[in-house]
Design a protein around this nucleic acid. Structure first.
Lengths: 211, 211
DNA sequence: TCGATTCTGGCACTCAGTTTCAGAAAATAT
DNA sequence: ATATTTTCTGAAACTGAGTGCCAGAATCGA
């Protein structure tokens, strides 16, 4: 049972709607083909063919073969960064980051859950995708740091900002991993609950002692 | 002024010594050529030629073009993981990880500083290398978690272990960045001092508040 | 409808990475 | 020293990702 993708915004110019359709077709085809036949065994020609476009066109939408497969993950972080930049911070920063991420998850389209689960399954199975998503998340962290540095009037190199960014993405990724492992059961509420728990584990981990 | 590489262990069989020589030649050539001409502009043929071997041989020593350039970084983490696995833990885990890493740094050969600085400079300049090293460090974190899980009789998926591993690599990488930015001045003592400061910034970052 | 703008397909090209295999070199046995 | 076995290397052909280029198609604005 697959959740249908929401309709495209009718107010958009024709050309833009077409681009969005192509983008979706490519991302969907990537998820489908990589899952069915494996990442390496699927060539870009096939993938592009499945979406009725040429290889050249593929690279106009995605910078790499891997990028099409992690589109659902990218959607989340894009929404998160946008939400973060339009947010005024007050109180503990880690809490703010936590809330901003929860808000971003909540705001995503209804078809996101399913695509995200499929994406993470693929990432767990394909080393090439894991490598790519690690790199992608590193970029997200950099943007978080830049955004926070601006808001808090701190230096780009401030260790605390890097640590907070690191902790936020790590906590979310780990809770996402568990959620996906359970097949996405419980929906986003369950995902967000796991994320809460992960954030709470942070101070606990600093106190961890041996024997 | 370049620090000469230490002589090879005479007790090793001839064949092994030759392999080590080739490996060094390739890693050194990578650092030299990538620095001089750029990562993309240097082909594997040139690189292999510089070390007097064929392209095939290159791939018998390194899994990717990038790997030869980050050999100094890999050396450190390999020593660290080895030291960690032969260490019995007592007291706060973060402190143990901190000490194990400091010990690994101290134990490296006298030529390491220079190669590490060159490596990190290259990484800062070449996105492809940054991507690769991010992936490499992720592998190190996984091995840390596995090692700790074994020693502490905890689950592989324990959030606290992942967070501690993440924090350790992040703290070191950030302090390494600063050290390299200052040209490696002060030697390893300076590097380790920066690392101490970074580790201390961890609890501080959790308390960071806005306005 | 027409002209300007933007997007697409097709093609040729580079180069990283893999595979295969025959021959060189080192280790081992005689 | 010589023969034998094992391990390593170089050469060459191959796959496929990613790039650059250009002619023609689709869209937009008037």
């Amino acid at each position: 049972m697959t959740t249908a993708r929401p309709p495209l915004d009718r107010s958009l110019p024709l050309r833009e709607r077409k681009k969005l359709r192509t983008r979706r077709a490519l991302a969907d085809a990537a998820l489908r083909l990589f899952t069915r036949s494996g990442f390496d065994a699927t060539t870009l020609e096939e993938l592009a063919g499945e979406a009725e476009v040429s290889k050249s066109t593929f690279f106009r939408f995605f910078p790499a073969k891997e990028a099409a497969a992690i589109d659902a993950e990218a959607e989340l972080w894009t929404a998160y960064l946008a939400g973060l930049s339009g947010r005024e911070l007050s109180g503990p920063v880690l809490g703010e980051l936590h809330q901003a991420l929860a808000a971003a998850v909540t705001g995503l389209g209804p078809d996101w859950d399913e695509r995200f689960v499929a994406t993470r399954r693929l990432i767990a199975a394909e080393p090439a995708l894991l490598k790519y998503v690690e790199h992608y998340r590193a970029g997200v962290k950099d943007q978080m740091v830049a955004s926070l540095a601006g808001k808090l009037r701190l230096d780009d190199g401030d260790l605390r900002l890097h640590i907070l960014a690191e902790l936020t993405t790590t906590a979310f990724s780990l809770s996402g991993r568990d959620w996906v492992r359970r097949g996405g059961r419980g929906g986003r509420a369950a995902l967000l609950h796991g994320f809460d728990r992960a954030v709470q584990a942070i101070p606990a981990s600093l106190g961890l002692s041996a024997s």
